[in-house]
Amino acid sequence: MESKIEVVGLNAGFGSTHVLKNISLSIPRNRVTAIIGPSGCGKSTFVRCLNRIHELVPGAWVRGKVLLDGKNIYDSDADPVEVRRRVGMVFQKPNPFPAMSIFDNVAYGPRIHGVKDVHRVVEESLKKAALWEEVKHRLSHSPVSLSGGQQQRLCIARALAVKPEVILFDEPCSALDPVATAKIEELVLELKENYTIVIVTHNMQQAARIADYTAFFLMGELVEFGETAEIFENPRDKRTEDYITGRFG
């Protein structure tokens, strides 16, 4: 399996707190990789290291390598702004820009990167995010009027509009009801045709439903990584088995 991202000996934390301990793992291209584990195990910090968002928090630190198409994004000559354009992110809580219209939310990224045909990109992105039909007549409205699920799909459209290669989802459904969750999951499955997807989730059924590969994190360590079916049906590690059978976490 060809890998899109190769993580080698990644350590990260805040100040004196050591959150991620020596993580090495390779994320396959055009597949969905789920990161599961109990709260506080470092799964969010892990994905936030993949697009250099982690380091924005005061006191945060990172050591180790993250190779995107073979090139370390933490090299001194790597540009974090360019890394973030190539590796998009959808957050736990839908966070559309409240002061901008629906259209401007999606157009924000393309405009920053100097895209000429912004209208076409916005329409395309909203269609890919399965939101176009619901908002095409109110593109100038505020995103605040949308439901939580629609806001999250708007955030997905906004991320798609800068044409990333990888999309990180950080518990994208934890604030959504089951119907909205189903829509996002369906969307993730469609998107993997063209994008490499990493999704953090505390919902194991969700991981089982949509992920091709699953990584189990515990207390900042990678316990087990493999094909989802393997992890769920035939875990090699006792701790993985305990977690997925609900004995803790």
Binding site: N51, I53, L56, V81, E82, V83, R84, R85, R86, G88, M89, F91, K93, N95, P96, F97, P98, A99, Y108, G109, I112, H113, C155, R158, A159, V162
Partner: peptide, 20 residues
């Protein structure tokens, strides 16, 4: 979170501050 959302789109800091 709004600053993060903007930075995660590859927006530079100054545009994030001014536009978002």
């Amino acid at each position: 979170e709004l600053r993060e959302a903007s930075l995660a789109l590859g927006a530079p800091r100054w545009r994030t501050t001014l536009q978002v």
